[in-house]
């Protein structure tokens, strides 16, 4: 299934928009960052796939490489398929220059909170998200704790965090 799917993606969205990577038991499709939104919409609406259920969005930090990844776990309720999409985002880790990627919250509404979580904890900026606030941490938190190079601030609102 996945080889056929990858071929069709490359035919519809241009060469190099999708490649399969083998990482153990589950195969993953590596998606070109610029084509992500179109591919997701196509995957959701195309007869034969109907990936209508977005299970989760995970942001991964590849420290010490200056690279992040966003992983989409999809499943199709009709056909009972599962699919993993991955997008690589090279970035210099500066707090004023976050990695950017298109939001898919218009395609799956559940992506809204998942993307807010990825922004909150890993600092991925989702372009076109309707309400990209922090979700688990307070709004005045500084830094993104799930990054491997995160160091805890010594004080938060005048309270020591170490003691």
């Amino acid at each position: 299934m996945i080889n056929d799917l990858c071929e069709r993606l490359n035919r519809n969205f241009g060469e190099d928009s999708a490649t399969i990577i083998n990482e153990g038991l589950q195969q993953t499709i590596l998606v070109n960052k610029d084509k992500l939104k179109d591919i997701c919409l196509w995957l959701r609406d195309t007869n034969g796939f109907y990936f209508d259920f977005l299970s989760s969005i995970t942001a991964v930090d590849y420290f010490p490489k200056n690279e992040f990844a966003v992983v989409y776990n999809l499943s199709s309720i009709v056909y009972q398929y599962q699919l993993t999409l991955k997008v690589l985002l090279p970035n210099g880790r500066a707090l004023n220059d976050l990695p950017e990627i298109d939001s898919v919250s218009a395609i799956w509404r559940t992506a809204d909170w998942h993307e807010r979580e990825a922004f909150d904890l890993m600092g991925i900026f989702f372009v076109g998200h309707p309400d990209l606030r922090r979700i688990l941490l307070p709004d005045d938190w500084i830094g993104f704790p799930l990054r491997k190079d995160y160091t805890e601030a010594e004080m938060y609102r005048g309270i020591s965090t170490t003691s």
């Binding site: 990482e23 153990g24 038991l25 589950q26 299970s55 989760s56 992983v71 776990n73 993993t84």
Partner: peptide, 8 residues
């Protein structure tokens, strides 16, 4: 070995 896996 280095791999990724989603279990549900």
């Amino acid at each position: 070995k280095a791999q990724s896996y989603y279990v549900r």
